[in-house]
Nucleic acid binder design. Sequence first.
DNA 1: ACAATTCCGTTACAGTATTCCGAGACAACC
DNA 2: GGTTGTCTCGGAATACTGTAACGGAATTGT
Lengths: 165, 165
Amino acid sequence: MTEAVDNPVFPTDAHNHRHCVEEALTRAENVCRERGLRFTALRRQVLELVWNSHKPVGAYDILDKLDRGGKKAAPPTVYRALEFLIEADLVHRLDSLNAFVGCADPSSSHTGQFLICRGCQSVAELDDADINRLVEEKASDLGFSAVHQMLEIQGLCPGCRAANA
Amino acid sequence: MTEAVDNPVFPTDAHNHRHCVEEALTRAENVCRERGLRFTALRRQVLELVWNSHKPVGAYDILDKLDRGGKKAAPPTVYRALEFLIEADLVHRLDSLNAFVGCADPSSSHTGQFLICRGCQSVAELDDADINRLVEEKASDLGFSAVHQMLEIQGLCPGCRAANA
DNA sequence: ACAATTCCGTTACAGTATTCCGAGACAACC
DNA sequence: GGTTGTCTCGGAATACTGTAACGGAATTGT
């Protein structure tokens, strides 16, 4: 009974993804309004592309799908938008994959903790307070003052584990 | 009194670095002998370059400094050597920096946990069992089976903290 | 000595990200 | 309204990081 059925960190196959995206976009709008940031059309479009799946997306994938009035955009266009979104905690960058994922909760503490499935490539964000606290503690025990932490856990999500059984 | 003076995870300015390197190389020799791996001249040379400092080194930095009989080497030469060294747990790769550091203890568990100083760029490895266990536990609580974890903590080391005070 | 394997040099290229310049959009202020 | 300063975006060029593929050299085991 400890299987996390009631807390689907990993989205189920049947979830309404359109809804996910909509929510993410409104959240972003609100966050930006509150903080006096400009949620421009470009940034909105990039965020939407990041949210197109729960899998991490490469910058050049976004670039390919990005439509700037019929023309293709250039790399800096995408990277600038991503930089903004990351700064605003709306997107996270997964260092181990050189890829980006949308953040479901731009308001919380934000010490990047991620479960990355090697089976289906989907990613779930953790933001676990216990881990956060322990890490902070261990670091400061060594006289190190932590500014930012990034934990990337690779393995198999429940679904893929079942499939590979 | 909890300041980690007796356990210098971060090397002091005055430590004899030549000694560090020597030790790392003999450790590597032993590890390879025990495991039936070939510690070739190239690999030794690359490992030495990685250990040249306690700061992470980029692959192309190594490439520049690498001397193959007067000639310059090509990227695959370095990457292959690094791949081998990583496989043997003699070197770790820091995803957030695209850079490499020597591992001080190639025998232990090896769930990559690193303290990265933004002041002096030096890096210390943690390998903390508590963190390891907690993370494993949290992951499995969610039905996720973890294969590999990587924690990179950015901040200020004791020395730089004192300097910036 | 021979075959099998591992390792290495080399060329070419793929993928990721940044620098720089300039033009346009926007806000605030006089 | 016009002006000024800042933020944003387009685009070219280039830097940085990493791989694929091929062949030859070195090493190991028999």
